[in-house]
């Protein structure tokens, strides 16, 4: 996977997102062999991925596939009682097992996170402007009037109108979309190099979602920001991703450039996800190609390939766990994937 992603960087962002910063060739985030377990149960198994400066990696999957846990592990924010093993490198520094001060040095400044429910992440009894100011005071040298100016700039940047007035509002006085903008402003307060966004638009109306996605894309090209974007919505993936990693039941089952995945999904689960999309090209009222069954609970995952019980093509080989193998552009964890036969798209 590590090799796969390094090579997969090829066309797309060389063309559309020139890497910013001094360490242009070094991933801002590199996760290798990450396993998260709760007691004897593995929730996330052997996840490896990397994100380059200026690129957007979408983590896609249904509930319980481990996408959020992967993000939380990347920031060292796992709940007590969960145990992570493997390697997480932020800006080249190993943070797994490192003392708290190592990750504190970058968390909130170089790498920040936004969540699905902005109302829950904001302090309800503090004016939104003051909350952003607090983040700035915590992580930068700015003080006094300079902080105020920065707060106003940020709120303007994320498209909040009448900043002078709205910065004095409490979260409950703003709509969900506005609160998410405030969260993004706060996340950008210290000019981070990596933004982890966990379903940031799932709770929002489509018109607000479209605005937030556009905002993130604009900010990305302006600031050279790398984004890890967690979503279950393939439409959102089509809107924002450069590369995609599809997760199923705790594992990455397929990863590659976004166009390749949409044009020619290789893993049966990716194909199933693509097939049950309800796009506008579909004839209304027709039966959807629904994959049978549901995602297994972490404690009830099958032996071998996790998707085998739901897979239309599974056979005896699927009793053994498939490893993620790469044909250069694409990595797929399926016994039916032949990396040597797959044509590499340019």
């Amino acid at each position: 996977m590590a090799e796969a992603t390094t090579q997969a960087r090829g066309g797309i962002h060389a063309a559309s997102h020139p890497p910013a910063g001094r360490h242009a060739t070094e991933p801002v985030l590199e996760i290798a062999g990450l396993t998260v377990s709760a007691g004897p149960v593995d929730l996330v198994e052997q996840v490896s991925l990397s994100v380059m400066p200026g690129e957007t990696l979408c983590l896609v999957g249904e509930s319980g596939c481990g996408k959020s846990l992967t993000c939380m592990s990347a920031l060292g924010l796992l709940d007590d009682g969960l145990k992570a093993t493997g390697s997480v490198r932020l800006f080249g520094t190993e943070t797994m097992g490192a003392p708290e001060r190592v990750i504190n040095a970058v968390r909130g400044r170089d790498v920040t996170m936004i969540f699905q429910n902005p109302m829950a992440a904001l302090n309800p009894v503090k004016r939104v402007g003051a909350q952003i100011a607090e983040a700035i005071g915590e992580h930068t040298e700015l003080r006094g009037a300079a902080v105020d100016r920065r707060v106003m700039d940020l709120l303007e940047q994320v498209g909040i109108p009448k900043v002078e007035r709205h910065k004095n509002y409490y979260p409950h006085q703003l709509s969900g979309g506005m609160c998410q903008r405030v969260m993004i402003a706060m996340a950008l307060a210290c000019r981070p190099k990596l933004l982890i966004a966990d379903e940031p638009t799932t709770a929002l109306d489509v018109t607000i979602q479209a605005q937030i996605l556009r905002l993130l894309r604009d900010l990305q090209s302006e600031l050279g920001l790398a984004i890890v974007f967690v979503t279950h919505d393939l439409g959102v993936v089509a809107e924002i991703a450069d590369r995609v990693a599809v997760m199923y039941a705790g594992r990455i089952v397929e990863a590659g450039p976004v166009d390749d995945l949409f044009d020619d999904p290789r893993h049966p689960y990716t194909r199933a996800l693509m097939d049950c999309r309800i796009g506008f090209s579909r004839e209304p009222g027709t039966m959807l190609e629904a994959v049978k069954g549901t995602v297994p609970a972490p404690s009830a995952r099958p032996v071998g390939c996790n998707f085998a019980p739901r897979c239309p093509t599974a056979d005896a080989r699927c009793q053994a766990e498939p490893s993620l193998s790469s044909d250069g552009a694409r990595a797929v964890a399926c016994h039916f994937f032949d990396p040597s036969a797959g044509a590499v798209r340019q």
């Binding site: 979602q209 089509a238 809107e239």
Partner: peptide, 27 residues
């Protein structure tokens, strides 16, 4: 019209074509 225009694209290709129509250039 505004509501329908906000629906995410089906594929990344559609998204680029739409952006090209809307903004005249790729971001």
């Amino acid at each position: 019209r505004r509501l329908l225009a906000a629906i995410p694209a089906d594929t990344p290709r559609q998204r680029r074509e739409r952006d090209l129509r809307t903004f005249g250039a790729l971001p």
